Simulated scan of single mutants.
Amino acid sequence: MTALGFLYPGHSAEDDYPRIEQLLGSDIRLDVIHTDIGEDAHRVDALLRMGSVERLAAGTEALRLTGAEAVVWACTSGSFVYGWEGAHDQVRSLALAAGMPASSTSFAFVHAVRELDVRRVAVGATYPSDVADLFAQFLRAGGAEVLSVRGSGIITAAEVGTWGEEEVLTLAREADHTDAEAVLLPDTALHTASHLPALEKELGKPVLTANQVTVWEALRLTDRRVNAPVLGSLFTREPIVQA
């Protein structure tokens, strides 16, 4: 049994994790520990507070009790908002506090893009445009060429969590770029685990979504490989990229 830990802010789309656990169909357990979201706002100052070392450290004791072998901060905006170097510092602090390998959803996207061996990507974000642009800057720092960025202007994770398949498909379609080799949908508040086959069929290319890449990143940290095509192209490739 491989136990994977996730620090998830608040309550929006955390039910993606038991769904992904079921779809993996293997001896893998996904344990979600909720952190204090503070102010639910896709605004830079609120996101910086949400991803603070103190808030993340507060969840590590409960995480250790689960027997987790690795932990991922399951929040895209609460990691890339710190910038490339700041996000590295955040992960190092989390690893130290948790006493295990650690990463974040932002780095999961960077590693997943490399895993798919693509460079040119399009971004469809639920965030306001200024926050979406920060994600694009983070991806560029990680070596990706971001061809287009679409922000949806949604302020709260609570609203994002109400979106269904049609809204997710619309976001992906509108975000896609003719020359993009993959489409990225950040925001772990967005339900996507059940929509991955439909997304990739609709766009005809790999689609990376926040909760999907977060789980993949935790598997990468523990050197696990699971073939699960129902979770998209990312879960059908070899080998796992190294950090």
Rank of each mutant, 00 (worst) to 15 (best):
S104P: 04
V160G: 00
D130C: 15
R120S: 14
V118C: 12
V149E: 04
A189V: 06
G124F: 03
A102N: 03
A102P: 01
E166W: 10
S194F: 07
R140D: 15
D89S: 12
T105H: 07
V110G: 00
W84K: 07
A102S: 05
E167I: 09
F135A: 02
A172H: 06
V146W: 01
R119L: 11
V110E: 01
L185M: 15
L139C: 13
V183N: 02
P186L: 06
A102E: 01
A189D: 06
V183L: 13
K205I: 08
S77G: 11
V81R: 00
A102T: 03
F80E: 00
S152I: 05
I155Q: 07
G161T: 14
A136H: 10
V123H: 03
A95F: 03
G204I: 14
Q137W: 07
A180Q: 12
H195W: 14
S194H: 13
P197C: 12
M100C: 11
A189L: 06
A189G: 13
G142V: 08
L134K: 03
G143N: 11
A95K: 01
A68G: 09
A68P: 05
F107G: 00
V131Y: 02
I154T: 07
F138T: 03
T192E: 04
P186F: 05
L196W: 09
S104A: 06
E159P: 10
F109H: 02
L185E: 07
T170G: 07
E69I: 12
Q137D: 15
M100A: 15
G124I: 07
Y127N: 04
F107Q: 00
H191Q: 14
L196N: 05
D187S: 08
L196Q: 05
A136P: 03
T76P: 04
A144I: 01
E174G: 10
Y127C: 07
H111V: 01
F138G: 01
E115W: 04
V121C: 04
A141L: 08
D117E: 08
L134V: 05
L199E: 02
A108Y: 00
D176M: 05
A136S: 14
S103N: 12
D133I: 13
T105E: 03
G151P: 04
T170P: 02
A97T: 13
H88V: 11
G151Y: 04
L185C: 12
D179N: 09
H177Q: 14
V113N: 02
A193S: 12
G164T: 10
A198P: 05
V113G: 01
E166L: 14
S93H: 08
A132T: 14
E167G: 13
L139Q: 04
T178V: 13
F109I: 02
G204E: 12
L147V: 13
